[in-house]
Write a protein that binds this DNA or RNA. Structure first.
Lengths: 230, 230
DNA sequence: GTCACATTATGACTGTCAGTCATTCACAAC
DNA sequence: GTTGTGAATGACTGACAGTCATAATGTGAC
């Protein structure tokens, strides 16, 4: 029946409208200051209606995180589809992450908040939170596959377990991203200013560092001879 | 005057008593569920009194984070005082961090929360938050000095900038720690279960990976010949 | 057109809690 | 004992998340 189809679409639209409004309000004043009343007003709906779509303010904020991670994963997918070596894929995935976060710091804040809600039960059964987890799983699997590609094409040392390596690379990339993000917002990390560190080059340095460890012995040798030539 | 001295001591004791109480309450039910009323009751004080010592619930939670980072830094200092190579210092500092977080996941949650409060103004001028920042600065400087030691004793490649390298190592260690922590709490990272990843070995793998990049060329060569012998 | 039914929206209402402030208390100084 | 000062109190306020009885809207049948 077409009516039913239309209703589903309308429901989806309303859902999106609420998330849009929530983004505007929360991104502009922060999750703590934002009120459901204001979000409802911004979405041209009543407060009660918000609760037909979201269990709580936290779940609504999680929906924003979900949206951010959707976008991010789309970018990963695009990178992954490009034709390059495994090692190069790893580099590009990391860069994509970093770029995404500097372009969308507010989404990253949503990620952080979502993660700091570790044991809030209301999210345990949330379908929206489950979507975030699914995105995490997918992102990680891009990483694993990139490593496997690299091990096949000889750009990555195949003595590692690709899944373990993926987690190591992913979490350290995440750490660097976090620092880069935090440098940009709030009252944190004056240390970095004092040290006059260019956060933009952190990830490059990281790659430089792990690159040596990742590379196959041949590649490492080659690089060494190259640098001696220079 | 001894009276004044005693008063200062008493004030400090009361401060600690409140933080003790706050830890008991917040660690057991989480920051969102904990109420100032209950913390006050636990500290055998009235709610109003709490506000003579802390500007807000967030600042009180920050005081807990502060306490955690004090302890952590003491451990770093102990490690740093031990007599070993620069590379070994780096390894031990990372391990210390990891151990601290698995022994004190609640403190790490406080760190995470503190960080997710990036642009909440009330903390911008807080002396307690400033203490957290100072601890960060100190921790990072341990890292820098360990690297400098390693560059002197020949265990670490001195073509890096020690400050930049410190940040890279530190933030990636942080990332790994975060994942390790999150694996343990809440509804997150079922991926890791699915993948049957041992988070305990993540940091070792990380060291294995960056170790190669960190090491001087000689050390790298030596390691290679060693492994060929085997 | 209208009736019955279902689905969705509404906003007044409730309970809770962070944070305040006028008042009380404790104690030191003289 | 009196006075003065700074700390402690808890009743109070305002604000907000989340609920729920009621209203509105839409749909499909006849």
């Amino acid at each position: 029946m077409s009516t039913e189809e239309r209703k589903r679409r309308e429901k989806q639209q309303r859902y999106n409208r609420i998330v849009d409004a929530a983004e505007r309000v929360i991104f502009s004043k922060g999750i703590e200051q934002a009120t459901m009343q204001e979000i409802a007003h911004e979405a041209e709906l009543s407060k009660g209606t918000l609760y037909l779509y979201f269990r709580s303010k936290n779940e609504l904020y999680t929906a924003i995180a979900r949206r951010g991670s959707d976008t991010l994963n789309q970018r990963f997918a695009k990178v992954f589809a490009s034709d390059c070596s495994g090692l190069e894929l790893i580099r590009r995935i990391g860069e994509t992450y970093l770029d995404f976060v500097s372009e969308n710091p507010e989404y990253f804040k949503a990620f952080m908040y979502y993660e700091s809600m570790s044991e809030v039960d209301e999210l345990r059964e949330s379908e929206i939170a489950a979507g975030c987890e699914e995105n995490r799983r997918e992102a990680l699997s891009f990483m694993v596959r990139a490593l496997q590609i690299g091990m096949q094409d000889g750009t990555i040392d195949d003595s590692f377990d690709p899944r373990e390596l993926a987690i190591v690379l992913w979490s350290s990339t995440r750490g660097i991203t976090t620092i880069t993000h935090m440098k940009g917002v709030g009252h944190y990390f004056k240390v970095l200013d004092e040290m006059e560190i260019q956060v933009s080059s952190l990830f490059e340095n990281f790659l430089d560092l792990v690159g040596t460890g990742l590379a196959t012995e041949e590649a490492r040798m080659k690089k060494m001879t190259d640098s001696q030539k220079m």
